[in-house]
Design a protein around this nucleic acid. Structure first.
Lengths: 206, 206, 206, 206
DNA sequence: AATGAATGAGCATTCATTCAT
DNA sequence: TATGAATGAATGCTCATTCAT
């Protein structure tokens, strides 16, 4: 009726994707605003401009929506990370790119960032069962890069790669969380440099 | 009731504290196990061995219990931090003590750690309205220490103290989160040294 | 569609009948399996191999499907009953034929029997408003036959014909219900003889 | 507050029983009036004069209420049947007493009769899983009595006792169903004699 | 005629909170 | 203080029905 499209076939396929997409986007917005448990399915449907029941044509449950948000974003996240990194030679540059991407991505979509930083952690069960795999994969990407750097003598070897990876991740993560909770609206990506400055060189003088 | 006391007045006052304490402890255990939203007030009462209604003689609502957990722990946390730090002269030693205390405290009470790392973040609203003050105070403690270090020439000055503070906090925080979600049961406090090694000296060689 | 016909017009009309028929058959199967209230219109459509919406081209509502099942079956039931009975002279033989037909019909289609014995009764409203007429007509057929038998001296007159009719009907009905609920798969029609033996002669010795 | 009672202890215990009882009575009334599936838990609560949630303090689910109605009534039914029968010597008299009790019981509580005759059968699943045991026990009581009669020569032996039992039960059952659906308000118990007249002596003359 | 995506009213159940005892 | 029975608002999900295509 009001849906612009190139052809009937494409239109239909696109429409389905669009609606699923719209629900996901609405859910991110609603979850970010009120928290997962305080959000009603009706809120999401209302935000998406569809009927309550329609949500269930695309998702089995409210919980599945949360998982889908995570799966999709984490997939893109890691995928893009790997792609961008491949082209780079130096582990140092790779870590820099990862950090930049991390903050760019989340800094570009505050709602998504909120859901990731705050809501997705609101459940130990969720953290353990679902996000574990995704987070682990991301952490492993960082760890491997650091390990490579250690092997070529770029990074010190008296620190376990996995520990260093957690430190970098934790630092970046905290930047995002602080940015979300901050009342000021500063750009997030530049913080990557600051973090790396300390991560690479330490805070001690000389 | 079951504890003989020196005087009725004291006994009553102490008993009150005991019961409030018991409820808080039970709540930490229950929240850690099932998450705040999935925990019923009846679960907490059951765990504490009291009637459901009794909970409301000590707390106004379920939410207030969560806040009380945070307030009490954060108060002790910061108080102990300040006290231990005062005695130390070097900013480096101060940061080391803070890091050690951070991981010792949370590493000593896994349930409390879970509530702090996972559950307390399950609500943007909570994070913003309540924890902000506490977290900010804690972060400020770290920031000031770093600033002191910069002033005496211990720490580089091309990194903003507040940013460095967030990095340290974020790194420690991630250690705790990983420890909680880990299936392995390793001791958390020793990670303080690892974090500080990187925080002070950086990962780069030389 | 799959049945070649002499003319398009006839084909269409027949197809309509076929589809209506298919829906009815599917509904009997589905209702028998899960009960009327637990059956979804989508189940019936799926069983019939058509789209959900198509059901509404043939029936106004789910309830109408139930009524149609009853109406059609009861109509055939009574029609066949009358036809078969007309040819017989003796009231005794007539009752025997009715009983045999009753059990043959339902014994030949377990699903239909289930819908008749179990599902159709799941609603007082239905029983009163709809089935009343059909049942009443069937019961009247039996009553009249018994009355005829009383007039010609075959049956005792100290029992009201309508009461005797209900007794016969109730006994047959119970045979069907037991057969449906039974785990054993015995043939139902032979029970007609047993029922009639008691109905005609009583259980008392001599 | 408004509850009359002899003593605190008794009052409390009686009150609990009373409320459970009240819910059961209300449910019978509501189920009888609108059918199980069309009845809302809120209807039952409203009829009982309690809050919706209170229902769940006494029953786990709406379905459990239905089962409880059946269990309680069937228990009393069979219990009373056995008790009354024991005192009687003749199988003939026993069957007469059973028939009378059957119609008296259900004839005294039209709503309960409706639930038993109509609603309890609205689900094949229910009939098979739950009522089976109760009905089977009742049918067995009748069968055994008939068998006893056959052994002492009172009843003919060319009819299987179980079949005769089903016939008697079916006939009585039909009396109840007809009475429920009838617009006229005649007394049900007298029908016992009519049924037995036919059951013992048959409808044939002489 | 046929489709099946979309609708939205409807409902069983939960649980934080209250309050009479 | 303590109890725990009672409350009733709140909500995720279902499914009969509609209607644009």
């Amino acid at each position: 009726m009001s849906r612009p499209r190139g052809s009937a076939g494409q239109g239909t396929r696109a429409a389905v994707g669009d609606k699923r997409e719209a629900i996901l986007r609405s859910a991110i917005k609603v979850f970010a605003g009120k928290g997962y448990f305080n959000s009603k399915v009706a809120d999401i449907a209302g935000e998406a401009g569809i009927a309550d029941g329609t949500v269930y044509l695309y998702f089995k449950s409210k919980e599945e929506i949360l998982h889908s948000i995570f799966d999709r974003a984490m997939g893109e996240f890691i995928g893009e990370g790997r792609r961008e990194i491949e082209a780079l030679a130096s582990p140092t540059e790779k870590l820099r790119r990862i950090a930049e991407l991390h903050l760019q991505r989340l800094g570009a979509d505050r709602d998504l960032a909120i859901v990731f930083q705050i809501e997705l952690r609101g459940s130990t069960k969720f953290m353990q069962e679902f996000s574990a795999a995704g987070f682990a994969e991301y952490l492993e990407l960082i760890r491997k890069t650091i390990e490579d750097g250690q092997e070529v003598g770029l990074f010190r070897q008296d620190v376990k790669a996995i520990v260093a990876a957690k430190i970098l991740y934790g630092a970046l993560d905290e930047m995002v969380t602080n940015w979300i909770l901050s009342k000021k609206d500063y750009p997030l990506p530049p913080m990557a440099d600051e973090v790396l400055k300390v991560f690479f060189g330490g805070v001690s003088s000389k």
